[in-house]
């Protein structure tokens, strides 16, 4: 299970996908990471990470009609798989265990 871990940016992207639900594609994912994690990332990095997560089977793509009220072409929407959700939880547990003995600066 060498590939079973999540890198930090992968973690962020996967969390964004889970939060966005049925609207997880390039623009909102990038926007969410910029707002919540305060990181200005490039589309290239987002796509590359999505591809990597897809290869690890943590997410999959499905074609869905555009959510925009003005219509438009359907989009490829990313959805986290069960394995993806488990991987997020496992990563969180690992982080928590590692952080337990470290006092946060107050």
């Amino acid at each position: 299970m060498a590939n079973d871990y999540l890198g930090e940016f992968e973690h962020l992207v996967l969390l964004a996908v889970m939060q966005l639900g049925g609207n997880a594609y390039g623009v909102p994912i990038r926007q969410l990471i910029a707002e919540r994690a305060e990181r200005d990332v490039s589309f290239g990095a987002v796509y590359s990470t999505l591809r990597r997560l897809e290869a690890k089977k943590y997410l999959r793509f499905a074609c869905e009609p555009s959510g925009s009220p003005a219509g438009g072409r359907p989009r490829r929407i990313a959805r986290a798989t069960v394995e993806g959700e488990q991987a997020v939880h496992a990563a969180r547990r690992r982080l928590r265990r590692m952080a337990e003995s470290v006092q946060s600066p107050s």
């Binding site: 290239g44 590359s48 591809r51 290869a55």
Partner: peptide
Amino acid sequence: LRQILTIGLYELRDWRHRP
């Protein structure tokens, strides 16, 4: 322009990881 360039660069970087 920077976005397009980086998408291309990431694609190239990932080339060797593709199936």
